[in-house]
C-alpha cells in the first residue's frame, strides 16, 4: 500500500508546486485532480472561479446579517415614557439581524418579480430628495427603502426566507447589554440622521451605513434616525407591564408582543424626528397599511440552535 504525504515539489518551474509524494515519486495536485487535457484545465479554472464567486457571496451575506447571541438583556426604562415602563429582563434565543436597513436596490429585486401592484412603494414627488419609486430605485440604490407598508415589509422578508424582528429583538440589537440610551452610548452625538441640522442630511434620507460612529454594541448600523423600522409586534402601551409581571423572578422568554392590536410597533426614529424619539427604548406605533417617507425596515432570522 502506498503511503501519501502532502509535500512541496522541489521543481520550482512547476506552476503549482503542491502535490502528493508517494513511493512512486511526486505528483502535482492538478494531475491528481484533472490531468492536463485542455478540457480539464478549463474545468479547473472554472471551478476556481465558481469557488471564488461563492466565497464572495457567502462573505457578503455573512456581513449583511449580524448574529446576536442568545442571552438576557434589559428592556424598557423606568425613567422615560410611560409605555417604556417597567424596565424588565428579557431572554432571547440567538438570532440574526440585518446590519443595515433594506435598501432601494434590494427591494427593487423583489418588486420586479411581483405581480401584485400593492407591493409598489409610494411615490413622494413633493420630496425631490426622495422622489418617486422608479427614480429613487435608480438614483439612490443604497438609501433605505421607504414608502412600504408593514405588509410589504413582511412580504419582502418572507421572499428572502427571513422575517421582521420582534420588538424585543430590535431593542436588544440597538441597546446591547449595557442599557445604552442611543446605539452608540449615552451622550447626545450627531451620529444619526435626525431632524437636527448638524448631521449633514438636512431634510433628506442618508444612504445606509452613513454613520459608522452610530453603530450599536453589536455593530448594527442606523438603529437611530434615518427611517423608523417596522417590527413584527402589535403595539400595546402596557405590554411590558403585564408581560413582565409573570417574569418578575425570571426573564420573559422570547416575547412576541400582544395577540391583537391596531398598530404595529415602529422603532428607531427618523429623519423628521428629534433625537429624543430616536432612543433605543422609545416606542412608537403606526397603522400597518400606511406607506410614508420615514418608515422602512430591516430583516431578522432565527439562528439555528447548535445540536448537542
Amino acid at each position: 500500500m502506498n503511503t501519501f504525504y502532502l509535500s512541496r515539489n522541489q521543481n520550482r518551474n512547476s506552476p503549482i508546486n503542491i502535490g502528493i509524494t508517494s513511493k512512486r515519486g511526486f505528483k502535482p495536485l492538478q494531475q491528481w485532480c484533472f490531468g492536463n487535457s485542455p478540457l480539464s484545465i478549463m474545468a479547473r479554472y472554472l471551478s476556481i472561479l465558481l469557488f471564488g464567486l461563492a466565497l464572495c457571496v457567502y462573505v457578503e451575506a455573512a456581513e449583511e446579517m449580524i448574529l446576536i447571541p442568545a442571552g438576557t438583556f434589559t428592556m424598557g426604562s423606568d425613567t422615560r415614557a410611560a409605555d417604556e415602563k417597567p424596565k424588565h429582563k428579557v431572554y432571547l434565543d440567538a438570532y440574526y439581524i440585518g446590519k443595515y436597513e433594506v435598501t432601494n436596490a434590494e427591494y427593487y429585486e423583489f418588486w420586479k418579480q411581483q405581480t401584485d401592484a400593492a407591493r409598489t412603494p409610494e411615490n413622494f414627488t413633493h420630496l425631490p430628495e426622495i422622489g418617486d419609486w422608479h427614480a429613487r430605485a435608480e438614483q439612490f440604490p443604497n438609501h433605505p427603502v421607504v414608502g412600504v407598508s408593514w405588509h410589504d415589509a413582511n412580504a419582502y422578508a418572507a421572499w428572502k426566507g427571513m422575517r421582521l424582528p420582534t420588538e424585543a429583538e430590535w431593542e436588544k440589537a440597538a441597546r446591547g447589554y449595557t442599557d445604552r440610551v442611543w446605539p452608540w452610548g449615552n451622550a447626545v452625538e450627531p451620529y444619526a440622521n435626525t431632524a437636527a441640522e448638524d448631521d449633514g442630511y438636512q431634510n433628506r434620507l442618508a444612504p445606509v451605513g452613513s454613520f459608522p460612529k452610530g453603530k450599536s454594541y453589536y455593530g448594527v448600523m442606523d438603529m437611530a434616525g434615518n427611517v423608523w423600522e417596522w417590527t413584527a409586534d402589535w403595539y400595546s402601551d402596557v405590554y411590558y407591564g403585564y408581560s413582565s409581571q409573570a417574569a418578575a423572578k425570571r426573564p420573559k422568554m422570547n416575547p412576541t408582543g400582544p395577540d391583537v392590536g391596531s398598530w404595529r410597533v415602529i422603532r428607531g426614529g427618523s429623519w423628521i424626528d428629534k433625537i429624543a424619539r430616536c432612543s433605543t427604548t422609545f416606542r412608537f406605533y403606526f397603522y400597518p397599511n400606511l406607506k410614508t417617507s420615514f418608515v422602512g425596515f430591516r430583516l431578522a432570522k432565527t439562528a439555528e440552535k447548535r445540536k448537542k
Binding site: 409610494e122 411615490n123 413622494f124 414627488t125 413633493h126 420630496l127 423628521i272 410614508t292 417617507s293 420615514f294
Partner: peptide, 11 residues
C-alpha cells in the same frame, strides 16, 4: 401625489 404630500406633512 397631492394627497400623499398632505398626509406626510400632517404626520
Amino acid at each position: 401625489s397631492k394627497y400623499v404630500q398632505h398626509v406626510e406633512q400632517g404626520f
